[in-house]
């Protein structure tokens, strides 16, 4: 893959993703809250539909090119980490991509969330080296 293609692809996909997340409502704290309280199922359906469309797409991709995708198994940090993440998502209305969309939209308080995410990620990387040391998935090990 050429570097130029990777750069242009990164810009195009990043912008498309930012626009999409904004228009779906994922960058709105209130919408996220209504999703989690089942008051509005629209965004849950967005997620479900995306997964339903992606599942057969990956099968086709795997037929065409034989990608070496890392398996994502369960490890000691999976559930605890995800529970922490989910609670943080409910509190701040953000996840690692949405937070940048919020900043772009002018919701500048999200900069506080960015600081938190960077700090939390850093702290975990230190804690992991000192105490845990299990494999956290190839996403990070790669």
């Amino acid at each position: 893959m050429s570097r130029a293609r990777e750069v242009l692809g990164t810009i195009a996909v990043g912008m498309a993703m930012g626009f999409t997340l904004s228009r779906v409502g994922f960058s709105s704290w209130d919408e996220v809250n209504q999703m989690f309280t089942f008051e509005d199922l629209r965004m849950t359906l967005v997620f479900g539909m995306a997964v339903a469309l992606l599942a057969p797409s990956w099968i086709i991709v795997q037929r065409i090119s034989k990608p070496r995708w890392p398996p994502r198994g369960i490890h000691k940090g999976t559930v605890v980490g995800a529970v922490l993440f989910g609670a943080g998502w409910a509190l701040s209305g953000a996840c690692p991509s949405i937070v940048f969309v919020q900043v772009g939209e002018g919701q500048l308080a999200a900069l506080s969330s960015v600081v938190g995410i960077v700090a939390g990620n850093y702290v975990y990387s230190v804690v992991h080296e000192r105490y845990f040391r299990w494999s956290t998935g190839s996403c990070l090990d790669a």
């Binding site: 559930v79 980490g81 993440f85 943080g88 690692p96 991509s97 700090a119 850093y122 975990y124 992991h128």
Partner: peptide, 24 residues
């Protein structure tokens, strides 16, 4: 927001993924 963000940063790294990598 800073507290929530810290939980997100710590938790996603611990779980090895977030909404895009794990979820989607």
């Amino acid at each position: 927001l800073a507290l929530g963000g810290a939980m997100i940063g710590f938790g996603t790294r611990m779980a090895g993924g977030c909404t895009s990598g794990h979820g989607l």
